[in-house]
């Protein structure tokens, strides 16, 4: 019998703890498939964050470290400097990367650390139960913004890709989404490209992935995908911000 589909070797058999309809599972698979297809699984080291993907170290089959909240880029820096030939990635949420870990991500980008950051932006704190994130949209309700985010009080949601794209050694920055199949395919391409650029040693690479949180958004999975498309993409446009000349 012909094999028509096989789960990537980049993931373990451990069932994930993610909520039904959460897109973390898709993003895990895209990262794992990219590593496998590029032949990097044997020399990959991933860094899991604090947040919903805190247990990512159990799901990826490569070597993994679990970092303190927001510190994954610093941790990845240590790993990459010790093993420069390895493929190092961080997998971080919006609270981790865009709030508590802003210094670490900016400076890893500034140094041009040859790592790949997968930045999962779902505009909410998932793990802790739906508090406001730096990326929560204006008017979007959260447990710490019960009336919706008020821009006068809490400021405007932060656009990390746009910000990091101003840094010279952040050579590849792209925002993608996983709310439908064509976008998932594009997301995979971007992630794969980021790892390729890392292995060429060109500099810091990041793929921001717009993601859903049906549980904390209070929506069904299908409603959540629709909400992402209609609300997040207008504020967080899907586009490539930086690609190095060498791979254009």
């Amino acid at each position: 019998m012909a094999v028509v589909f096989e789960k990537t070797k980049g993931l373990t058999d451990k069932p994930t703890h993610y909520c039904p309809g959460c897109t973390h599972g898709i993003i895990h698979r895209l990262v794992a498939e990219s590593l496998e297809e590029l032949g990097l699984l044997d020399k990959a080291v991933g860094v899991a964050p604090v947040g919903c993907s805190v247990f990512a170290y159990d799901y990826f089959s490569c070597d993994m470290q679990e970092a303190a909240h927001g510190r994954a880029p610093a941790c990845a820096t240590g790993i990459k400097r010790v093993h420069p030939d390895s493929a190092v990635f961080t997998y971080q949420g919006d609270g981790d990367l865009a709030s508590i870990g802003t210094a670490e991500i900016v400076h890893a980008a500034m140094r041009g650390e040859k790592i790949t950051t997968i930045f999962v932006n779902n505009a909410i704190y998932g793990m802790t139960g739906g508090q406001m994130a730096p990326t929560t949209l204006v008017g979007q309700k959260a447990t710490t913004a019960p009336l919706g985010r008020d821009a006068d009080h809490a400021g405007m949601p932060i656009r990390m890709s746009e910000m990091l794209a101003t840094i010279p050694k952040a050579v590849f920055i792209e925002r993608v989404s996983v709310h439908d199949v064509p976008n998932i395919i594009k997301a995979k391409k971007a992630i794969k490209k980021a790892f390729e650029i890392q292995m060429k040693g060109l500099g810091f690479t990041m793929v921001e992935v717009l993601s859903t949180c049906p549980t904390n958004w209070g929506k069904t999975p299908i409603e959540a995908l629709k909400w992402l498309k209609e609300n997040m993409i207008p504020y967080y446009p899907i586009q490539n911000f930086r690609t190095p000349e060498e791979v254009k």
């Binding site: 470290q65 970092a67 510190r71 610093a74 941790c75 820096t77 240590g78 400097r81 210094a103």
Partner: peptide, 10 residues
């Protein structure tokens, strides 16, 4: 903070 986390990674 970053320095000690680089130590952790290394």
């Amino acid at each position: 903070v970053a320095a000690i986390n680089m130590v952790y990674g290394a």
